[in-house]
């Protein structure tokens, strides 16, 4: 279990983290989500022992990261936002250097390099100089160095930033593949990525945790789904009748293609859609469309960080 307890961090009187607490269970993929400047990178740098918090505690199992950073460093694989590579080195030389620094036994180093290069798809470029690699491959080299010592905990700071859509999908697949038996904590501001990869999400805003849960829990709890109804514009008492049935109109009505658009909030989309349809039929309103939209993580994100 990884626990972050009440950590604070200030830079030149700017509070980057203000009492951030959360935990990650073993084997879980935890996503740190938040707008730029929310404190995601600061949190990850503290967890990776690069920075020390002003106060608070980070525990990796029984290991206090702040008191015993050397022990914690052995347990962590870390990929910072700007992939830390030596461009003049060959991929093999770089991985060998990291493996040696990570105290992997000399007779195991070759085996580990082979394994991670296969896992990360680097076997084709293993003899190339890092400077010659594409951004996608450089990201893979960064991931390979983070997992070369087979750490229990993997910390990835925005691992797909700057990649093209194909590369993003490849890196996501890669993270999924290496997530078995590891706890992965990664930050992102790409909501679809977090939805696709994470078991749980912690949303940070202005240095504070503003929401925590599984993507579906957050969607269900924080933002209601919406029902879009388009009916004839000449009908009277439409809003009164819909409100009288216990519904809340989400937005001011707007003219649609054929009639008038009404957006209704819903806690239970299927039941509510049925009820709305019944009201429409009962009143003989001409209906042009009745659609629903479930709340997404994006809606949650926009709702709580606006």
């Amino acid at each position: 279990m990884i626990s972050v307890e009440n950590i604070t961090k200030t830079f030149d009187q700017i509070t980057a983290l203000d009492g951030v607490s959360f935990c990650a269970r073993p084997g879980e993929i935890l996503g740190l989500l938040g707008p730029n400047g929310a404190g995601k990178t600061t949190t990850l740098k503290i967890m990776a022992t690069f920075w020390q918090p002003d106060s608070g505690q980070v525990n990796l199992g029984n290991c206090d990261v702040i008191k015993y950073p050397q022990k914690a460093k052995q347990m962590i694989g870390y990929l910072p936002e700007n992939v830390p590579l030596y461009d003049d080195m060959k991929v093999y030389e770089y991985l060998r250097f990291v493996a040696e620094m990570r105290n992997i036994a000399p007779d195991k180093i070759l085996e580990r390099i082979k394994k991670v290069s296969l896992e990360t798809g680097l076997n084709k470029v293993i003899g190339q100089t890092i400077a010659q690699l594409s951004k996608g491959y450089k990201q893979r080299v960064g991931l390979a160095q983070a997992i070369i010592h087979d750490p229990d905990i993997l910390i990835l700071d925005e691992p797909t930033t700057g990649l093209d859509p194909n590369q993003i999908i490849e890196i996501r697949e890669l993270i999924k593949n290496i997530s078995q038996n590891k706890t992965i904590i990664f930050s992102s501001h790409i909501l679809s990525e977090v939805s696709a990869l994470c078991d749980r999400v912690v949303i940070l805003d202005k240095g504070k945790v503003v929401a925590e849960g599984t993507p579906s829990e957050l969607s269900a709890q924080l933002v209601k789904s919406l029902i879009f109804l388009e009916i004839g514009s000449s009908e009277e008492n439409v809003f009164e009748k819909i409100s009288a049935a216990g519904f809340k109109i989400a937005k001011d009505p707007a003219p649609g293609e054929l009639g008038i658009n009404i957006v209704i909030e819903s806690n239970n989309v299927n039941d509510d859609k049925k009820k709305i349809a019944e009201i429409v039929l009962k009143n003989n309103w001409p209906i042009y469309s009745l659609e629903t939209k479930s709340a997404t993580l994006e809606d949650v994100f926009r709702e709580i960080t606006k």
Partner: peptide, 14 residues
Amino acid sequence: RLGTIELILTMPIS
């Protein structure tokens, strides 16, 4: 400049 200082200082070396 390269950001590799983060790599070095998060390795098991003081």
